[in-house]
Design a protein around this nucleic acid. Structure first.
Lengths: 242, 242
DNA sequence: CGCCAAATTGAGTCCGATCAACGACAGTGG
DNA sequence: CCACTGTCGTTGATCGGACTCAATTTGGCG
């Protein structure tokens, strides 16, 4: 593994404070590979063999049932995913596929469990990581249960506007629709219907023309939309997902 | 705190393996109180001061937004809740209220954080607990996004049937409806509509008259319905097609 | 018995899904 | 350079599921 990659991973909150030797051991048994787009890295139901870390590209976490499929999250560099399954040595609950050419590091789950049993600082980092992941999924569930689809969309746009009034959608609209729990057709209509509420769209480009009006629709709150920047669809993170 | 209570708490996976002195210290600073029904124990948004443990009764975890409200989980003895917020020293994402006369132990969050930094076995237990909670919320989210309301209800009934064909609903129907993401009216209609699919209802009493038919509706899978029983009211999942 | 909350039932409406058609665009190969 | 092709996004029309509102009925409890 390249030194730059190692340092990047070492800088993650998850690994920052752990013992150097332990980190070295973990990484010695790790893989780091390039993948083309649209490659399935993980299939839900399979035993959790490896903790994954995205160092380049983007990975979609999704789940299926009975022929249906839904996007649960998008993970961008540098962040980990499916930590919980590895820790519990349980089957993955989500599948993962690359969305673009990506570089993925993989750490054996057994090494992970052995190390976190020996390294207190690492165990603490894992606790914090998991607690963050847990809270982000709770937010997602609240978003789904408490808001209507138009409101979810408005809140999503505000989360990604971050001060500046214009930005590019970080993912395809069909993926965004799935993440927000609606159909692509409905997302299209919902975007248009937000015109009077201060949203203008041109392709992937979104411009917030009236933030106050949009806020009135979305009623954003840190208890759903978060402040710690973890867990939303596509954030660039030194944190993780899983 | 009574000795019987202490032992019960000590027997929880979360505390079982930790150092005896550390456990003693934690409990010395803890409260244990009785509450009448319908008492609000926690309000979302407040700073997370205490880890809570239900030793008797039942507690509803719920969340609100913009005048709406939804049930996220029901916690029954003996189990903890809002661990994640305490660990992260972050605001609660959910509110909690007693559903019946209940007995609740409370451990100061600061003690908790101090102890898990010193006690490796405790840290490991917390990791497993959190990983389990995380996975249960992921399942809840998958349930909401992938299944229609009728299917969610069918799956819920199967989860709680546990072999025997008859059981009592563990919560009020309005609460169940909220947990499943529907209105009480719709739950009523959905229950009736499951008659031809092998469900008969009399008050709180549910009888599965044709498990195969109900399975055909719910398509249960451990990846949504099964497993490590935190959050929902657990179920040891098995059979699945689809 | 009487009170209140929960549950059911019915009727009407709306949101969101489905189905189908079309335009925009990128990549491919002739 | 340009048809060919597949995917994505949009739009329209229609359908169905779920919500709302309102009226009873049921059941629990003082």
């Amino acid at each position: 593994m390249r030194n730059a990659d190692l340092e990047e991973i070492r800088d993650l909150p998850l690994f920052r404070d752990m013992d150097g030797d332990h980190f070295g051991n973990l990484m010695r048994g790790a893989y780091h590979q390039n993948f083309p787009p649209q490659v399935t890295l993980i299939e839900e139901g399979r035993p959790a063999d490896f903790l994954h870390i995205v160092t380049e590209g983007a990975v979609e976490l999704y789940a299926g049932w009975n022929g249906r499929e839904t996007t649960m999250a998008v993970v961008r560099p540098v962040a980990t995913f499916i930590l919980a399954a590895c820790i519990n040595d349980a089957p993955y609950l989500m599948s993962a596929r690359t969305m673009m050419p990506s570089r993925i590091a993989m750490i054996a789950g057994s090494d992970l469990r052995a190390t976190f049993a020996r390294d207190a600082a690492f165990a603490q980092a894992i606790v914090r990581e998991l607690a963050g992941c847990y809270r982000s999924v709770v937010r997602h569930a609240k978003d789904l249960k408490l808001r209507a689809s138009r409101e979810r969309l408005a809140a999503y746009l505000l989360r990604h506007a971050r001060g500046s009034g214009a930005f590019d959608l970080p993912v395809e609209k069909r993926t965004l629709a799935s993440y927000l729990g609606m159909t692509p057709e409905n997302l299209s209509r919902a975007l248009k219907s937000l015109g009077p509420d201060g949203v203008s769209v041109d392709g992937m480009r979104v411009t917030i023309t009236d933030a106050a009006a949009l806020v009135a629709v979305a009623c954003p709150t840190p208890l759903i939309d978060g402040g710690d920047g973890c867990g939303d669809l596509s954030y660039t993170g030194s944190s993780s997902n899983c």
